[in-house]
Structure formats: C-alpha cells, structure tokens
C-alpha cells in the first residue's frame, strides 16, 4: 500500500527554487534513506512535508494515505501520522517538556478518536517510552529543549516520536551529534517501532546509521532533485567515493 506519494514536487523561498521536481514513493513498512551534499534540499523536503509555511510549493502533489498532504495545516499532518524529527530542535523556554508532550499526545488522540489520557495513563505511557529511548526523567521536567545538549535534543525528538506513534517518521539527521551509544539507542528505538504499517524517511550523511537501521532504499538528493536511487549498497558506494561521481554523472547528463 502507498503511504506517501510525492510527484514532481517543486518548492522554495520567494525568489529561490530549492526543490526542483521531487518524485518519491514510500510504501507502508518501508525505510527510505535520503543522502546528499550540504544544501541540496534534504531539510527543505522534510520541512515541506511537515507543513512549514515559509517554503512555497510551486508545483507538484503529495498524497499521504489517500489525502492531499499539502492541503493540511502542520498540526493536521501530525495528527494524521506525519512526524518530523528536526535537524535543529527548537528551544522553548518556559514550556515544560512534559506539558508539551501531554498536549501533543492528547490533541493527536482526540483526532484519532481516542480518549484523552488522564494523568495516570499519561505517566504510564511516558515511563514505557522513556525506557525505549533511555531518556532521563530530569530532562523531561525541564523547559522544552532549553539548554539540552545536542544529543539530548535528538533523543528528545525520538522520545516524542515514540509518544506520538506516527505512521511516517521523517528523521532529519537525527544521527548527527550522537555518540556511539546514543546512536545505538536511537536506532534501537526506531527498529522496535519499525513494522509493516510504519514507514521511515531517514535523512543522513553517514552510512554508519544505516548499519543499525537497514534501509530498503537509498536516494541521493542533489541540487533539488533525486538523482540516484538504489538499495543499501548505494550508501556504501557513496561512503567510498563521495558525491563527486554523482555530480559528474549529473554534469554529463547536461545540468
């Protein structure tokens, strides 16, 4: 079954096209990895899918489980099952992490026709998921991401993913800035959550992550387009040769 179907997606800032015609199909249960040089548009793609409004979509369509994703507000997308783990999670002083997650969980549950969790139910769920990503209680009683280390922020993203139980999780460089142990924990969290109904889109620069989370497909995003797709071997090839061979292939093809 198709989970996400991106057709000729073009988007950018006012006078700057960034995504120049993305085509991508993700089926339920699949894990796709997106690699590509800095500035090629990976985070832009992730943001556009999550509904960030400062990027303007100029052409194309995105279908998510039979619905027009581009037509939805960011919160609707989240409630429908899209989750974006941010490359740079935002620090929000004065908002307690726990209250925030509770609000998010309950608004999402309401949308999905489930009853709001009471304090006890919520705590139980928290405990369970905290174990999954080995995040410390003390972190969750602080203001949202405020003063969190880089790795703590990433772990908090995965924790939120686990709490919100999305259908499609987009992880934008969640592996960057993680130490080896944290990387294993995060990968573990993803793997436990991976099943025939859930899909992942992993943005990464490193083959290393793909040792832990083995993707079904690997794509290379370059200059706003997916210029090469393959299986996990492609990631190994990129690791070995760098992006130059793709750039030159692309140059030969006449860009």
């Amino acid at each position: 079954m198709h989970m996400l179907s991106i057709k000729n997606l073009q988007a950018g800032l006012e006078d700057k096209p960034i995504l120049k015609g993305i085509n991508l199909e993700i089926k339920a249960g699949e894990v796709h990895a997106i690699m590509g040089p800095n500035g090629s548009g990976k985070s832009t793609l992730a943001s556009v899918l999550a509904g960030r409004q400062n990027f303007e979509v100029t052409a194309g369509s995105v279908d998510f489980l039979g619905k027009d994703l581009l037509d939805m507000a960011p919160e609707e997308r989240a409630r429908e099952g899209i989750f974006l783990a941010f490359q740079y999670p935002v620090e929000i002083p004065g908002v307690s992490t726990t209250n925030f997650i509770k609000a998010a969980v309950n608004e999402t549950r309401k949308h999905r026709g489930l009853e709001a969790l009471d304090a006890v139910g919520f705590l139980k769920m928290m405990k369970e998921k905290m174990k999954l990503v080995q995040i410390d209680q003390s972190l969750l009683s602080r203001s949202l991401n405020e003063g969190f280390s880089g790795g703590e922020k990433k772990r908090n993203e995965i924790f939120q993913m686990a709490m919100l139980e999305p259908k499609l999780a987009i992880l934008d460089e969640t592996d960057s800035g993680l130490d080896i142990d944290a990387l294993r924990i995060v990968a573990n969290g993803v793997n436990q959550y991976r099943n025939k109904d859930n899909s992942f889109l992993l943005v990464t620069h490193y083959q290393r992550l793909l040792d832990y989370i083995v993707p079904d497909f690997v794509h290379v995003l370059y200059n706003g387009r997916i210029v090469k797709s393959g299986t996990k071997e492609l990631a190994l090839e990129l690791e070995e040769k760098g992006y130059d061979f793709i750039k030159s292939e692309w140059a030969l093809a006449g860009e």
Partner: peptide
C-alpha cells in the same frame, strides 16, 4: 515562528501553540 511550527508539528493546534508560547513568555 520557529517555535510555533515546532509545536504545531506535534499536533498542537495553532491556537493552543500560541497560548503555550504566550504563557511561557
């Protein structure tokens, strides 16, 4: 805007996201 988007991307309505941020302020 960044904070608003972050909150909304977790399923929190725009209205609630705003009041969370204003209260935090």
């Amino acid at each position: 805007d960044d904070a608003l988007f972050y909150l909304r991307s977790r399923g929190i309505s725009e209205k609630n996201a705003r009041s969370l941020l204003l209260h935090a302020y």
